[in-house]
Design a protein around this nucleic acid. Sequence first.
DNA 1: GTCTATACGCGGATAGAC
DNA 2: GTCTATCCGCGTATAGAC
Lengths: 182, 182
Amino acid sequence: MPLTAAQQRTVNAAVDLFAEHGVGGTSLQMIADAVGVTKAAVYHQFKTKEEIVLAVAEGELARVEAALEIAEAEATPAAARDVLLEQMVALAIERRHMESTLLSDPVIVRFFAEHEPFRAVMGRLARVLMADERGREARVRAAMLTAAIGGAVMHPLVAELDDKTLRTQLLHLARSFLDLPD
Amino acid sequence: MPLTAAQQRTVNAAVDLFAEHGVGGTSLQMIADAVGVTKAAVYHQFKTKEEIVLAVAEGELARVEAALEIAEAEATPAAARDVLLEQMVALAIERRHMESTLLSDPVIVRFFAEHEPFRAVMGRLARVLMADERGREARVRAAMLTAAIGGAVMHPLVAELDDKTLRTQLLHLARSFLDLPD
DNA sequence: GTCTATACGCGGATAGAC
DNA sequence: GTCTATCCGCGTATAGAC
């Protein structure tokens, strides 16, 4: 179900505010003020705050799905995995400038853990990431790699690196973690 | 400054509730009920909710510091790094059973990012983790490794693995990421 | 479809009595 | 140390105007 114009304005404002103050730290009043309407007007667009969070999360999910589409179009599992690595790194780099807490927010995390559509996408992501491997080691490796790319961009240690350098290093080290050539 | 008995009871209750519902999802009323007193009594122990969060975060920090003490007692940087890896994996495994969101919670993350004592410990951790290396690659690698160990334990992909297996795999893969022997 | 007005309950926080 | 009472802001919710 596509969003109406008013809903889209609300979501856009919410994304910025969630990224800056966290979901729990963002009130409907703040969102309403940012859009330039009243609380009740926002509440009319989305029946609950959770629905706004859901819309924001779905927006994020859509980007991951787009990355998956590109990767899964490759001919071999190995090629798909490598393309997915590039996509994941690119998404993570974009994300780093939203003060953000957006994906580490418990509320968002809960959505990604509980709602089936999110789990399905995460399953696809894991499958491509593991290529043709199957064992425990491959699972742990995929879990670590996902966490490493997503978490490293927010780490103070890399705060001073510019986007291009960080992107190159992340991709290089991710490949080396998988014993892939550069 | 050590905690009074009443403060310790409050903190103990808070840790469990934060782990289950997140910081934002835990009200002072919930903490008060868990301890068996009123909200105002809790407020007498800690002037604000943030002070409770701080006390909880300091408890977590103390464990990381203890791990660092053990690692830094080693004779060489390489040995210190390897011992620290073991300690970090052990801490992460413990943590996995707190539904948790505790360390990924925006409120907690903010504390670790803004308060100097936390930054100092994180600096020590990074230093030991990088051993005698200095360059950009070492920094990104340390950031990825920290995120990978901390984040992987919560990943759905490894949910079915028992603690011992996960611990072994994490340590094995962390070492391989650093090109270390097992 | 979009908005205003208004009300209810809850969570964070403070003042002051015991 | 703990209580009662109270204040304010926010999230939820409804009725109704444009």
